[in-house]
């Protein structure tokens, strides 16, 4: 299993080294992006949703075909207010319906995966890709993920419980909002009307995958105390149909460590479907809006993370 994936990665790396980046647009024909189209679409995302920014990343990891200061896109501190499993039971139809429109007749399409009520489906658009077709070839996906935080070596890590602040100055500080019941001022004693959430957050990044010629999404999770989330726990925030299949943990091209990623092998095909839906509704899709469409598609895989992908842009109204 793992070997298959590694062989594929090696093959992909070789192909990427010996082939030049795409220069001719195949956006409408194949749903893919050239490098310059990716930069164009990224510029537009950053302009319209300024919580996204371009990053230069580590010098040693730069891709020569991308501008030095536009290696990947990132938005940080995105809240994830609840787990995907609870989300699936009460999916709000508003988000995905607009683009992905309709369910397959067999109920196996995109919307079915996040629990869209069946009665809303119409037959206007024929089958969007099914979950089955989006899975990476069976068994190729998952590597085991050993414990992130020490695991067997835990006994060597200094025990923080023995190391509390002996005489915390802050105790007498009256001006901290998290008042002072206990020995430190950060300890929560929040006002009763406080709606502050202790929630997971994500950094969401988008890289360009030269092999598949599509964007690729990466998720870096943090727990309620802002410590990195074990990749295994990230799967709780992914649509259960996708966890470990289309979403796997892999090395990020620009950041250290393992990060959850939506595998791009079917991105081109899905984007092609979305573009066809738009064209069938009389909307001429523009390549600089690719990432907005793309992020709407990703939202069906990761329904719980509230990153910015909405904007008031004119895609034409749908015909129902």
């Amino acid at each position: 299993m793992v070997l298959t994936q590694r062989l594929h990665e090696a093959f992909k790396g070789t192909v990427e080294r010996i082939t030049g980046p795409r220069t001719v647009s195949a956006f409408k024909e194949k749903g893919v992006l050239s490098v310059s189209e990716f930069v164009l679409a990224g510029d537009n995302l950053v302009a319209k949703c300024p919580t996204w920014s371009w990053e230069a990343g580590e010098t040693s990891k730069r891709k020569s075909y991308l501008p030095d200061d536009k290696q990947y896109l990132i938005t940080r501190n995105v809240p994830c207010l609840r787990r995907a499993s609870s989300m699936e039971e009460e999916y709000d139809a508003a988000g995905g319906e607009f683009l992905l429109g309709n369910d397959d007749d067999d109920g196996d399409g995109w919307l079915a995966t996040h629990g869209m009520p069946k009665e809303t489906k119409s037959s206007e658009v024929e089958g969007l890709p099914s979950m089955e077709s989006l899975e990476i070839s069976k068994g190729a996906a998952i590597r085991s993920i050993p414990a992130y935080f020490g695991g067997e070596e835990e006994e060597d890590i200094p025990d923080m419980e023995d190391y509390e602040d002996p005489e915390n100055l802050i105790e007498t500080d009256t001006a901290s909002a998290h008042a002072t019941l206990q020995s430190t001022y950060f300890v929560a004693n929040e006002p009763e009307d406080d709606n502050i959430l202790r929630t997971r957050t994500y950094d969401v990044s988008i890289t360009y995958d030269k092999y598949y010629q599509t964007p690729r999404v990466w998720l870096t999770g943090y727990d309620e105390s802002r410590m990195p989330l074990q990749p295994e726990l990230v799967f709780e925030d992914v649509s259960q149909d996708h966890a470990r299949k289309t979403v796997t943990t892999e090395d990020h091209p620009h950041l250290p460590g393992k990060h959850a990623s939506v595998h791009p092998c079917r991105h081109g095909a899905v984007m092609k479907k979305i573009i066809d839906v738009l064209i069938s509704r009389g909307v001429e899709p523009e390549v600089d809006k690719y990432l907005f469409l793309f992020l709407k598609f990703i939202a069906s895989v990761v329904p719980t993370i509230e990153y910015d992908y909405t904007m008031d842009f004119d895609l034409g109204s749908s015909s129902h």
Binding site: Y148, M160, D165, T184
Partner: peptide, 23 residues
């Protein structure tokens, strides 16, 4: 001046998974 501002606790993270060459 007097000052306050320590975070309540130290934090610890282990990165053997991504740093240990053997792993």
């Amino acid at each position: 001046p007097k000052a306050v501002g320590w975070e309540p606790k130290p934090k610890s993270i282990n990165l053997a998974e991504s740093m240990n060459p053997e792993r």
